[in-house]
């Protein structure tokens, strides 16, 4: 048997310890969501002896008209899908221009992008609120789509510009000599060659928009417009808190980003560490 070095053993034990600590809240959440409220209240979620498992909390969270996760899911999808696709399409064009062309004030515009990226959401919320009110887009999903798309434009442009910078220019030059025009080069060469980066961006932006609570809370007023993160918030009553129900709702809310992460894990991780890094 191969001998395991003490340093490797120690780091493995520490890594497992951290993983368990990291996963513990999620394990607790699953346990609470799968058991009757009274049982969790009396025994605690960690006590497994004589536990009864049920899907009642999930059924209730999904379809109760007071706080329907189903309605929240539909609203979240209506907001998240266009808020992912639209900024990627627009930012890809902008990023290509920043990466390949010279134009007046290019550097100043790029610095503006960086400044926008570093701005906290809270700073923009009051002007955005009044702007949406003027546009009659307050309390409308379209308004939230507009806000998320605009907010996403800056970082997606920055991210894709860095990726386009790393693409070999000879590929585009070859297409130019082969007879392709600028738009054909962008659509037929640059975009398809950038699919892994586009998938990274899509995964991150989708997760970001889906998980957003702050903007949704500020710009959506009517409960029928609530996205899933807000619907989960409504499950908490003023005097009564059903932890089982809240846990089931939370699991529903995180399910889509989790599935997306599982499906696009490679691109997600690549997007986080950056495409220019080797690995």
């Amino acid at each position: 048997m191969a001998r395991v070095r003490p340093a490797v053993l120690l780091s493995t034990v520490i890594a497992w310890g951290l993983a368990v600590v990291w996963a513990l809240p999620f394990i607790g959440l699953v346990m609470v969501s799968l058991r009757p409220y009274s049982e969790v209240l009396i025994k605690g979620w960690w006590s497994i002896g004589g536990a009864h498992f049920t899907l009642e909390n999930f059924k209730d969270a999904w379809s109760n008209p007071m706080y329907s996760v189903e309605r929240g899911y539909i609203n979240s999808l209506i907001v998240t899908i266009p808020s992912t696709i639209a900024p990627i399409l627009i930012a890809a064009l902008a990023a290509y221009a920043f990466s390949r062309f010279s134009f007046p004030l290019k550097n100043y515009l790029f610095i503006t992008l960086l400044v926008i990226m570093s701005m906290p959401q809270q700073m923009s919320v009051i002007p955005l609120f009044f702007m949406l009110k003027e546009l009659h887009l307050l309390d409308r999903l379209a308004g939230l789509i507009l806000v998320h798309s605009s907010w996403g434009l800056a970082w997606i442009t920055f991210f894709l510009k860095n990726f386009f910078d790393s693409l070999p220019r000879e590929m585009e030059e070859a297409a130019r000599v082969d007879g392709a025009g600028e738009l054909q080069i962008f659509l037929r060469i640059v975009l398809p060659a950038s699919l892994p980066a586009l998938a990274s961006v899509a995964a991150i932006q989708f997760t970001w928009v889906w998980s957003d609570f702050f903007y949704a809370l500020m710009f959506l007023i009517s409960p029928e417009n609530y996205v899933v993160t807000l619907q989960v918030g409504t499950m908490k009553g003023q005097y009564h808190l059903d932890w089982g129900l809240l846990s089931a709702g939370s699991i529903f809310a995180m399910l889509v980003p989790l599935l997306l992460y599982a499906g696009l894990q490679k691109y997600y991780v690549r997007g986080m560490i950056g495409w220019t890094a080797k690995g």
Binding site: P168, E170, M171, E173, A174, A175, R176, V177, D178, G179, A180, G181, Q184, R188, I189, P192, A193, L195
Partner: peptide
């Protein structure tokens, strides 16, 4: 594109997302 010249680049500059067939056919398809 308006000069009607073809060029082989030193580092080949192949289109990585296309098959060999599509790479070769690209100048004709375009």
């Amino acid at each position: 594109k308006d000069r009607d010249v073809a060029m082989v680049f030193q580092n080949y500059a192949l289109y990585p997302h296309m098959t060999v067939y599509d790479n070769i056919a690209f100048p004709l398809m375009i």
